[in-house]
Amino acid sequence: MAHIPVNHPLRPVYRTIAGLTGLYVLIFGIAGVLATWGDPLFARDDVWVLGLRTNLAFSLSSVAYGGLILIGALIGGQAGHYANLTIAVVFMVTGLLMLGLLRTSANFLNFSMSTVIVSLLFGMVFLATGLYDKVGPVESAGSDDEQQRHPQRAGR
């Protein structure tokens, strides 16, 4: 973990990016719940919301994860850091799992290829924001940490 930047100067920008992406996930989930309400939980219907195919189960999970992402972005700090890293793994694993189940009857979240791509992209966004929004003591931030690891560069 020594190579994860601590107190990166663009940390507020990364928190904003994570928050906006989480807001999209939340809005998608709410719109998906409204569009699929009354359908079976794991329906395989042709329901598209905001350019992504969905069913009630996927929409409900999007509402839950969108809310968690927004809470993590609002709280920030170490909680936001670990929330983003955890959500990144969830999005990437889900995207890869659904890619494997895409053209089978086991596609329980009703993913399409565009949904897989968006899930993987969002996973990478949350991974990047999670890696760059780590908070720590001032003495372990940026240039001091760099000087400790590479003393030959400090004399330049």
Rank of each mutant, 00 (worst) to 15 (best):
G66I: 01
Y65A: 05
L41T: 09
S112M: 06
G100Q: 15
M92H: 06
S105Y: 06
I117W: 07
M92P: 03
V47M: 00
S62G: 12
V116K: 06
L85N: 12
F91L: 10
V90W: 07
S105A: 13
N84H: 15
N55H: 15
G95Y: 08
S119D: 10
G72F: 05
A64V: 12
R53F: 08
G77Y: 14
S112N: 08
F111Q: 06
V49T: 13
M113P: 07
L68Q: 02
I71E: 00
N84W: 08
G66D: 01
L121K: 08
A73H: 03
G51A: 13
I75P: 03
L68R: 01
M92W: 11
L52C: 04
V49E: 14
D46F: 05
L121W: 07
R44C: 00
L52Y: 08
G77K: 12
M98R: 09
L102K: 15
I69N: 04
F42H: 13
N107L: 06
R53A: 10
G66M: 08
L56Y: 05
D39Q: 14
L50D: 05
A88H: 06
V89M: 09
I87K: 05
R103S: 15
I69C: 02
I75A: 06
I69R: 00
S59K: 13
S59D: 11
F58Y: 11
G76I: 03
N55Q: 11
F58V: 02
D45S: 15
A57L: 09
N84F: 15
S105V: 04
G38F: 11
L96F: 07
M98T: 09
T115G: 03
S119H: 07
T115C: 03
P40T: 08
V93P: 11
L68V: 05
I117S: 09
